[in-house]
Design a protein around this nucleic acid. Structure first.
Length: 866
RNA sequence: GCGGGCGUGGUGGAAUUGGUAGACACGCUGGAUUUAGGUUCCAGUGGCGCAAGCCGUGGGGGUUCAAAUCCCUCCGCCCGCACCA
């Protein structure tokens, strides 16, 4: 045999990509008779180059897009860029390049990389969130939200880096210090813009139940994030007047049933009561300041001891005025949840118990666990939070927890304290309003103007867009917009007096909260075109990383609701189907000095890993998700130029279920590449023989078996792709290819088989097309087909071909397989039983005795119980 | 701490949802061809056993004619949230 010819992926892939582009195959029109299907992968941040995670993500989406197109859908599959954000400003500071240039040149490069993957994308719809046109429309949305009362302005605490003069995200605070400057981070009160997402708490929560095609895990995470809890807001009367001028204190509790176990009240360090008291008590002031500093890092909170400061005030028990409780300022109370004040019941809350033990407060159990003796039950180091019966609680004694909650609420609701009910039932949410102000340049300007006379005034729509000025410098810390000489100066739209522009820009999560809607009419002169957006949304299949399970997806769900309120869309849920893919991982390597090494620097010599150049020993570390810092990265472009996009795509889909992390290995890529070569060679070898053959059923059992295998594979692959079980679809195709390769040596020249073989090969090509589109086009044309596979319909499965007239049943004796039997597909249970009992193997095992029982599951199994 | 998920050969993983465990792939072993090698092709490959056979889905127990799948319990790993009253 001569050296087999090889498939030259590079040239062939470029050729077909050119062909698709020339034919405009993936251009999508909104008006089309076919049913719509919108598949979307989370758009990338233009960091500079694509990484393997992108390859995995976009391959999956592309399989769905191409498959659905073949199934007769009008598919929308667009691509864009999440292009605002800090890395561009960091690059500007480090490399003296303007964020705009940096971003757009990254986009150009990455677009080229994505095109090399051969994605079925309508590139005419491409958008970048930093395009003036895009953020112009986003400013319109902001103003409409503002008019609709969905935007508010309030003060909020932020992490402030005093050296860089900037606000830091929580992730940028490391050990209480700014990640860049290393300076201790301060908590500052800044006035900021907020979207009133909390107005939608209940709705966002309730609607989760109507998202069946979302992973359970993500729905749960969102549910916990929204954090609904039902409780009671109740006012305690104070024995005197508090420093802030009130003589009562309002607390929130979810456990009103434990009211008789209360031994103290506590307020947050930021509570008005605490702040007022601190004014005249330096010691308390020091304590309050200490609590604030603690607030910065999550680690500190974890390890912090429960600490408090007694105010010297007392509160009356609502049901027993003679009993008074001490009031503390405590470090574990959060100002922004509930009322920022609690009553503490140490016996039934761990935090309250820790606090009570530290300050020697009474611990009185009021919930008795089932089957427990009230005389001996005592609380040790652990609070009891389980079920039980109320006791030690006056009129609540003997009630269940639920009933007691209800009784307490009812009584206090109807009991007036200074003319208003003492308590009110309340539902509380953990979800807080979404602060969108960022003190940065590279983002969407917030279209507001501050006028000394008129206050905050929205920019009139005719003055939009508020465009980012190009002439900015990054040689100093802080927001360049803030110190811009002319851009900030503007006349007040209401009174005409000199005023100042808002210099904050929007959180980049705003940009990504509606891009999926913009894709439906990307050049519209309004944020959306109602016809288009209502036609295409919701996204039928959204695919991306689980790291966006909460924020991005929740914000988008809010945004669509807000857009509905403001008339930009008519539905509420953006994503009907969601799939969260796993990450791409790789082994890590270190040299003797502990420095990380790139995979290409490491080779195996005699089974030992050594440095490719120096030959020094290399230690193989754990498999981790690819990251630049650990150097365990593989460049997609290098892979594509060596093996071709189809190989990379096929490997991405093989073996590992898409929701799990997959390990990238050289051996795996080579395996995938071998299959590309094998498939091409197989078709290349028979193409000439089959050229004059007409497709058909052929004749004889072999042709029939082949046709059956074909329909079965088609059926299975269809189901697997619909379920996004790409690894299973791949396995089916391997199996089918193996079958074809067994048939070919005789079949290609046998007139009884060749027609069926030719058809079977054509079906193979159609089936691999969503996954390896270039190889498929090449094979398609080798087999003498006209047109493009990309424009070919998915064949219809013939259900008759999925069943055999006979079936092979395993025969078990006492649950162990001992024989097999071939019976008619619709043989009766009685007939099967008789046939089984006549089997030599069965008789042998029964040893002449009659079976106790015979279980026949038609078309499945037979079990003889001896 | 709370919530969720997972555990199957040397490896990634299949298993029609209670019905032949290990499909498919990687790796490995042997052979053929060509060769300088890779490539390609054929055969084998869960463990023990010469064999009939026995054992086997993290450990233990249970339900069932039948369990990777359902129940109880223990162990291990992973993810999310975290002082939310």
């Amino acid at each position: 045999m001569s050296t087999p010819e090889r498939y030259h992926a590079r040239e062939i892939e470029a050729r077909w990509q050119g062909e698709w582009e020339r034919e405009g195959v993936f251009r999508t029109r909104t008006h089309d008779a076919r049913p719509k299907y919108y598949v979307l992968e989370m758009f990338p941040y233009p960091s500079g180059r694509i990484h393997m995670g992108h390859v995995r993500n976009y391959t999956m989406g592309d399989v769905v897009a191409r498959y659905k197109r073949a199934k007769g859908f009008n598919v929308l599959h667009p691509m864009g860029w999440d292009a605002f954000g800090m890395p561009a400003e960091n690059a500007a500071m480090q490399n003296k390049v303007h964020p705009r240039e940096w971003t757009y040149s990254n986009i150009a490069y990455m677009r080229g990389q994505l095109k090399q993957m051969g994605l079925a994308i309508d590139w005419e719809r491409e958008i970048a969130t930093c395009d003036v046109d895009y953020y112009h429309q986003q400013q319109r949305l902001f103003l409409d939200f503002y008019k609709a009362g969905l935007v508010s302005r309030k003060t909020a605490k932020v992490n402030w880096d005093p050296v860089d003069q900037t606000v830091l995200a929580n992730e940028q605070v490391i050990d209480g210090k700014g990640w860049r400057s290393g300076a201790p981070v301060e908590q500052r009160e800044l006035t900021q813009w907020f979207f009133r997402i909390s107005d939608f708490s209940e709705e966002l929560l309730a609607a989760l139940d109507h998202l069946p095609r979302w992973p359970e895990k993500v729905r749960l995470m969102q549910k916990n994030w929204i954090g609904r809890s039902e409780g009671l807001r109740l006012r305690f009367e104070l024995t005197g007047t508090a420093p802030h001028g009130s003589n009562e204190l309002e607390v929130f509790t979810t456990r009103p049933d434990t009211l008789f176990g209360a031994s103290f009240l506590a307020v947050a360090a930021d509570h008005p009561l605490a702040l007022a008291a601190a004014e005249r008590d330096p010691e308390l002031k020091a304590f309050v300041d200490e609590c604030r500093r603690l607030g910065t890092s999550a680690v500190a909170i974890e390890t912090a001891e429960k600490k408090g400061y007694e105010l010297g005030l007392r509160a009356r028990h609502p049901f027993h005025a003679e009993t008074t409780l001490p009031i503390y300022v405590a470090n574990f109370i959060l100002m922004d949840y509930g009322t920022g004040a609690i009553f503490g019941c140490p016996a039934h809350d761990q935090r309250d118990l820790d606090f009570a033990r530290a300050y020697r407060l009474p611990v009185k159990p009021v919930v008795l666990p089932p089957h427990t003796d009230p005389n001996t039950f005592a609380i040790g180091d652990e609070a009891y939070t389980g079920p039980g019966t109320i006791y030690n609680s006056s009129f609540l004694d003997g009630l269940s927890i639920e009933d007691a909650k209800d009784i307490v609420a009812s009584r206090l609701e109807h009991h007036a304290l200074r003319g208003t009910p003492q308590a009110e039932r309340q539902v509380n949410y953990r979800l807080r309003d979404w602060g969108i102000s960022r003190q940065r340049y590279w983002g969407c300007p917030i279209p507001m103007i501050h006028c000394e006379r008129c206050g905050t005034v929205p920019v009139p729509q005719r003055d939009l867009p508020v465009e980012l000025p190009a002439d900015v410098s990054f040689d100093r810390p802080g927001n360049p917009l803030d110190r811009h000489p002319t851009w900030t100066k503007v006349d007040c739209p209401e009174c005409g007096a000199p005023a100042r522009r808002e210099t904050d820009t929007m959180d980049t999560f705003v940009d990504s909260s509606w891009y999926f809607a913009r894709f439906t009419a990307p050049r519209a002169t309004a944020p959306t075109e109602l016809d288009a957006v209502d036609h295409w949304l919701p996204v039928d299949q959204y695919i991306g990383g689980v790291e966006h399970a909460i924020l991005h997806l929740l914000y988008s769900r809010f945004f669509v609701r807000a857009m509905k309120v403001t008339g930009h869309i008519r539905l509420e849920e953006p994503f009907a189907g969601l799939f969260t893919q796993g990450m791409v991982t790789h082994e890590t390597y270190k040299d003797a000095k502990g420095g990380w090494l790139f995979p290409e620097e490491v080779v195996l010599r005699d089974g030992v890993a050594v440095h490719a150049q120096t030959g020094d020993p290399v230690s193989i570390g754990p498999i981790e998700s690819m990251s630049k810092s650990k150097k365990n990265v593989v460049d997609p472009t290098a892979i594509i130029s060596e093996y071709g996009a189809d190989t990379a795509r096929w490997f991405m889909l093989s073996d590992t279920p898409p929701e799990r992390d997959m390990q990238w290995t050289e051996a795996g890529v080579e395996g995938a590449h071998r299959f590309v070569q094998r498939t091409w060679r197989m078709i290349q070898d028979v193409a000439a023989d089959l050229r004059t053959v007409k497709e058909g059923d052929g004749s004889g059992s072999e042709a029939e078996a082949l046709t059956k295998a074909m329909h079965r594979t088609l059926h299975a692959v269809e189901r697997d792709i619909e379920d996004l079980g790409f690894n299973r679809a791949v396995a089916r195709i391997y199996e089918y290819t193996n079958t074809l390769q067994r048939v070919i040596p005789q079949g290609a020249s046998d007139p009884a088989i060749a027609p069926a073989l030719k058809r079977a090969l054509r079906y193979l090509v159609v089936m691999i097309a969503p996954m390896m589109p270039h190889l498929a086009e090449e094979c398609w044309s080798l087999l003498g087909n006209r047109g493009l596979v990309a424009e070919t319909d998915w064949p219809t499965v013939n259900p008759a071909m999925l069943v055999d007239s006979t079936v092979t049943l395993p025969v078990q004796i006492n649950g162990k397989k001992r024989a097999e039997i071939v019976v008619d597909r619709d043989a009766s249970s009685d007939d099967i039983e008789a046939a089984v009992l006549a089997l030599e193997d069965v008789r042998k095992h029964l040893g002449g005795a009659a079976p106790k029982k015979v279980i026949v599951v038609p078309q499945r199994i037979v079990n003889v119980v001896a």
